[in-house]
Amino acid sequence: SEIVVAMYDFQATEAHDLRLERGQEYIILEKNDLHWWRARDKYGSEGYIPSNYVTGKK
């Protein structure tokens, strides 16, 4: 599975969105859409994140 790191904070506005915290790692579950990826955080929460807010883990 692909691990990404959040470059920016993202506040979830929709129920299906996942909040991003800058510097935290997330697991990508689905990339069915170019701009919104389904991800899981370290607490096990899942939701959609803006793909341009994250970068591949170095």
Results as ranks from 00 to 15, higher is better:
residue 1 S to T: 13
residue 1 S to Q: 14
residue 1 S to G: 14
residue 1 S to H: 15
residue 2 E to T: 09
residue 3 I to R: 09
residue 3 I to Q: 05
residue 3 I to M: 08
residue 3 I to A: 05
residue 4 V to Y: 11
residue 5 V to F: 09
residue 5 V to N: 03
residue 5 V to S: 04
residue 5 V to M: 08
residue 5 V to Q: 05
residue 6 A to P: 01
residue 6 A to H: 01
residue 6 A to F: 04
residue 7 M to Y: 05
residue 7 M to K: 10
residue 7 M to E: 06
residue 7 M to V: 10
residue 7 M to T: 07
residue 8 Y to M: 11
residue 8 Y to I: 08
residue 8 Y to F: 12
residue 9 D to M: 05
residue 9 D to G: 05
residue 9 D to A: 06
residue 9 D to C: 07
residue 10 F to V: 05
residue 10 F to M: 05
residue 10 F to K: 08
residue 10 F to Q: 03
residue 11 Q to E: 15
residue 11 Q to M: 13
residue 11 Q to R: 10
residue 11 Q to Y: 14
residue 12 A to E: 07
residue 12 A to D: 06
residue 12 A to C: 10
residue 12 A to T: 09
residue 13 T to A: 11
residue 13 T to N: 11
residue 13 T to F: 10
residue 13 T to Q: 12
residue 14 E to V: 09
residue 14 E to G: 15
residue 15 A to W: 11
residue 15 A to Y: 09
residue 15 A to Q: 11
residue 15 A to R: 10
residue 16 H to W: 14
residue 16 H to P: 06
residue 17 D to P: 08
residue 17 D to I: 15
residue 17 D to W: 15
residue 17 D to E: 15
residue 17 D to S: 14
residue 17 D to F: 15
residue 17 D to Q: 15
residue 18 L to E: 00
residue 18 L to F: 06
residue 18 L to W: 03
residue 18 L to P: 01
residue 18 L to V: 03
residue 18 L to K: 00
residue 19 R to Y: 07
residue 19 R to T: 15
residue 20 L to E: 00
residue 20 L to Y: 01
residue 20 L to H: 00
residue 20 L to K: 00
residue 20 L to I: 05
residue 21 E to Q: 10
residue 21 E to G: 03
residue 21 E to I: 14
residue 22 R to F: 08
residue 22 R to V: 12
residue 22 R to A: 13
residue 23 G to K: 03
residue 23 G to N: 05
residue 23 G to V: 03
residue 23 G to M: 05
residue 24 Q to V: 06
residue 24 Q to T: 04
residue 24 Q to I: 05
residue 24 Q to S: 10
residue 25 E to L: 11
residue 25 E to W: 11
residue 26 Y to C: 02
residue 26 Y to E: 00
residue 26 Y to L: 03
residue 27 I to G: 02
residue 27 I to K: 07
residue 27 I to Q: 10
residue 27 I to D: 04
residue 27 I to L: 12
residue 28 I to C: 03
residue 28 I to P: 00
residue 28 I to N: 00
residue 28 I to W: 02
residue 28 I to Y: 03
residue 28 I to H: 00
residue 28 I to A: 00
residue 28 I to V: 11
residue 29 L to Y: 02
residue 29 L to G: 00
residue 29 L to R: 01
residue 30 E to L: 07
residue 30 E to C: 11
residue 30 E to R: 05
residue 30 E to D: 13
residue 31 K to L: 04
residue 31 K to G: 03
residue 32 N to L: 12
residue 32 N to T: 14
residue 32 N to H: 12
residue 32 N to I: 13
residue 32 N to W: 09
residue 32 N to P: 14
residue 33 D to E: 08
residue 33 D to F: 09
residue 33 D to P: 03
residue 33 D to I: 06
residue 34 L to A: 14
residue 34 L to G: 12
residue 34 L to E: 14
residue 34 L to W: 09
residue 35 H to N: 11
residue 35 H to M: 12
residue 35 H to K: 11
residue 35 H to G: 11
residue 35 H to Y: 14
residue 35 H to F: 13
residue 36 W to A: 04
residue 36 W to D: 01
residue 36 W to T: 07
residue 37 W to Y: 06
residue 37 W to G: 00
residue 38 R to Y: 15
residue 39 A to T: 02
residue 39 A to G: 05
residue 39 A to C: 04
residue 39 A to R: 02
residue 39 A to I: 04
residue 39 A to L: 04
residue 39 A to E: 02
residue 40 R to V: 07
residue 40 R to G: 02
residue 40 R to K: 09
residue 41 D to M: 02
residue 41 D to K: 02
residue 41 D to Y: 03
residue 42 K to Y: 06
residue 42 K to V: 09
residue 42 K to I: 09
residue 43 Y to D: 10
residue 43 Y to S: 08
residue 44 G to S: 04
residue 44 G to N: 05
residue 44 G to E: 03
residue 44 G to Y: 03
residue 45 S to R: 15
residue 46 E to C: 06
residue 46 E to N: 03
residue 47 G to M: 00
residue 49 I to N: 01
residue 49 I to L: 06
residue 50 P to T: 03
residue 50 P to I: 03
residue 51 S to K: 08
residue 51 S to V: 09
residue 51 S to E: 04
residue 51 S to L: 04
residue 51 S to I: 05
residue 51 S to W: 06
residue 51 S to F: 06
residue 51 S to R: 08
residue 51 S to M: 07
residue 52 N to I: 10
residue 52 N to W: 14
residue 52 N to G: 12
residue 52 N to E: 11
residue 52 N to A: 14
residue 52 N to K: 12
residue 52 N to S: 15
residue 53 Y to W: 07
residue 53 Y to P: 01
residue 53 Y to L: 12
residue 53 Y to D: 02
residue 54 V to A: 02
residue 54 V to D: 01
residue 54 V to C: 04
residue 54 V to G: 00
residue 54 V to S: 01
residue 55 T to M: 11
residue 55 T to I: 13
residue 55 T to P: 02
residue 55 T to H: 09
residue 55 T to V: 13
residue 55 T to N: 08
residue 55 T to S: 11
residue 56 G to S: 15
residue 56 G to Q: 14
residue 56 G to C: 13
residue 56 G to D: 14
residue 57 K to F: 11
residue 57 K to Q: 10
residue 57 K to P: 10
residue 57 K to I: 14
residue 57 K to Y: 10
residue 58 K to C: 14
residue 58 K to S: 14
residue 58 K to T: 14
residue 58 K to N: 14
residue 58 K to E: 13
residue 58 K to Q: 13
residue 58 K to V: 14
